[in-house]
Write a protein that binds this DNA or RNA. Structure first.
Lengths: 218, 218
DNA sequence: TATTGATATTTTGTCGACAATAAAGGGTGT
DNA sequence: ACACCCTTTATTGTCGACAAAATATCAATA
């Protein structure tokens, strides 16, 4: 849990989040160069905090840096998306497995409630809440794994990249109703404490999601 | 591929590696505080490069930092080891799966050669080369996955932590001959392009390894 | 005209100093 | 003696300036 869950306190924290969101939401275009002096005037902070923010973005795999040359926002490629979802499948599968073992009964009940709440919105066909709901669902399970590394890697690292692809390639998805069913099955497996099944279902869920996005991309 | 594979060029790179190794090898004790001023005199560089080095160590989960307070080397706990191996199982399992799909025939042949070479040393009972050989083997497969994220997470991140546990808890392991057999089976699965089996065998291999270490730890 | 080499300019890397925050210590009052 | 508050001290966070490296500019030559 390095980055995000604690509220930003220092100036670098805030700048890091601003810069990250500007990149993820496409305000700063993918593949573009990040000039330290330029950014320091834009965000009205010193170059030192910009540097530190860029370093954190590098650790998130959102920018790439070459020594004595500078940093660039990563490019969004089909291969990159594929690799990203391979790692997601692996890590979130393990997260589901561990969640089935480590979540408390109360947490599982809460998760079920969350899903029931989303059910109404799915019927209403509200796409925005559908995506937010999807993210919420995955977060719960990630946190339910109770594994620090897993949480940090997914929460602080991969998810912003995933969102970057979603936003900039215009994936408001449909596939919401089917995804909702998959969510239901995963929760059921977790409630049954069936770690093996929970992992398998989650991996399939992410695999389908990848295929869906990839299909649109080509 | 953020950190290690490119040779260190900048002063920060070198200091980062020095500092990391001092921590991993136990020169700087686990759980201890990292004073920026103190380290800057010790390594004869400015506080700025120490800060940046510490930031990178934080991204590797080797140190933890609190705003306005400072950074501490992580503590080595049984739970931490468990969590680490859970992530390893997940990621290296996926790496083996992808390696079975993406490694070239030549790379697989090389891997087999590597294993044959280790076989002699295993018979000789040289424990140092056994561990180095184990690391080599895992590296090959990780690289064979051809997945940037996977490579970076394992190579730059987790492996130094794994080594930190190994060194500081004195795990020169035996289990070498049995591990060697497991390696052979994994390579066989990869050579057969059986991704499913390769992943499963790798996961078991890491699980056994975890159990072995954990058994010693308690 | 294309290429190579030197020069100039821009950008990153490093440093020391100052500001802000948190921890430590001492004093006072109950 | 104990607790609380204020002062002091030490450590981190932020800044601007300088050094070094890479890139761009331009001139001379083949």
């Amino acid at each position: 849990m390095i980055f995000s869950q604690d509220k930003p306190v220092t100036s670098t924290d805030k700048t890091f989040i601003l810069l990250r969101d500007d990149i993820v939401e496409g305000q700063i275009t993918a593949g573009s160069k990040l000039s330290e002096t330029e950014l320091s005037t834009k965000y009205a902070v010193s170059r030192a905090v910009i540097r530190e923010a860029i370093n954190r973005l590098e650790a998130c795999h959102i920018v790439e840096r070459k020594a004595n040359v500078g940093a660039r926002v990563v490019a969004l490629t089909p291969e990159g998306l594929l690799e990203l979802y391979q790692v997601r499948e692996s890590l979130e599968g393990m997260a589901a497995r561990l969640a089935a073992l480590n979540m408390t009964d109360e947490e599982i009940a809460d998760l079920q409630l969350l899903l029931d709440g989303h059910f109404d919105e799915v019927k209403g066909g509200n796409s925005y809440y559908q995506e937010a709901g999807d993210v919420d669902f995955h977060y719960r399970i990630i946190l339910g794994s109770k594994n620090k590394h897993l949480i940090s890697m997914l929460y602080d690292g991969l998810y912003h990249l995933v969102r970057m692809y979603r936003v900039q390639l215009g994936m408001a998805g449909p596939r919401v109703t089917t995804a909702f069913d998959e969510h239901k099955h995963i929760v059921k497996a977790i409630a049954n404490r069936d770690a093996e099944l929970a992992e398998m279902l989650m991996r399939r869920h992410i695999l389908y999601s990848k295929n869906n996005i990839q299909h649109k991309l080509t």
